[in-house]
Design a protein around this nucleic acid. Sequence first.
DNA 1: TATTGTTATACTCTATAACTATA
DNA 2: TATAGTTATAGAGTATAACAATA
Lengths: 151, 151
Amino acid sequence: MSASSEHGPQRPGERRQDLATNLRIAVLRLSRRLRNESTLEVSEAQHSVLSALFHLGPMTPGKLAEHDHVQRPSMTRTVASLEERGLVVRRQDSDDKRSVVVHITDDGRALVKEIKRRRTAWLDKRLARLTAAERQTIAQAATILRRMVEQ
Amino acid sequence: MSASSEHGPQRPGERRQDLATNLRIAVLRLSRRLRNESTLEVSEAQHSVLSALFHLGPMTPGKLAEHDHVQRPSMTRTVASLEERGLVVRRQDSDDKRSVVVHITDDGRALVKEIKRRRTAWLDKRLARLTAAERQTIAQAATILRRMVEQ
DNA sequence: TATTGTTATACTCTATAACTATA
DNA sequence: TATAGTTATAGAGTATAACAATA
């Protein structure tokens, strides 16, 4: 049983496993650069929380923990650090008095926008050096990859 | 000055900034999954050190720190944790008695291979669900991205 | 005097276990 | 009894400052 007979026409030496290796290296290196080059003010954990609140609206710490695949005590701490810096506020839920709802503040919103702007700019600068055809390939790949990760 | 006039034919609404945003999200999410799903035994920091020693050969803690863009005291700690687990050994440099050279052990090599195998397998399983054309697009994109990151 | 590596100290993220308040 | 959130405690990664040994 050969890989090429299973998976249709491919470039010589471009077996699916080679593709996985190549993609793995590309993605891990690019993500590392993206994180390092453009998140100065907050950690990645903090940014992830701010981003969730920004895009999905107010949420309980429990939901945030679930969203980020971390345990609730970890989220308690991350939310506390964000609240100390005035980037989020915690409010008692009026219905369920056990619950707390975390809201992003105006400062938090501004920071999310700034980090997004900086990361996009960093990437955009590099994308600008490519040809239009290369950019189109990457655009298609990005869409495919996002769908692939969701599944 | 419009983006589309500068960069040639693109899908409607697929400005270069949209591409950067789309790619940023795809890469950050995929990298997160890759790290979480397939690195159980060692942290990412430890894996990075093992990988450098595996691919580049024995190195001083100073060189390792430089390679990973961390400070030397951080690397001292990471190397110590790897040595405790028998994945690396530290040896005195015969010429410069201030220096130490870190070598990967057979157990360390085996672990690097195992993690690489697991990450590639995780990705390969998901790539298998795509069409041959989609895989080809991703293969081309991976190559372009690797080149882009190096620059 | 400069360099290599380490130790001291501190902050963040992560986890599990145990606790409080509420449902 | 179950759930939401927190506190207690511990391990790992990161940093800066200070130190020892060597060049």
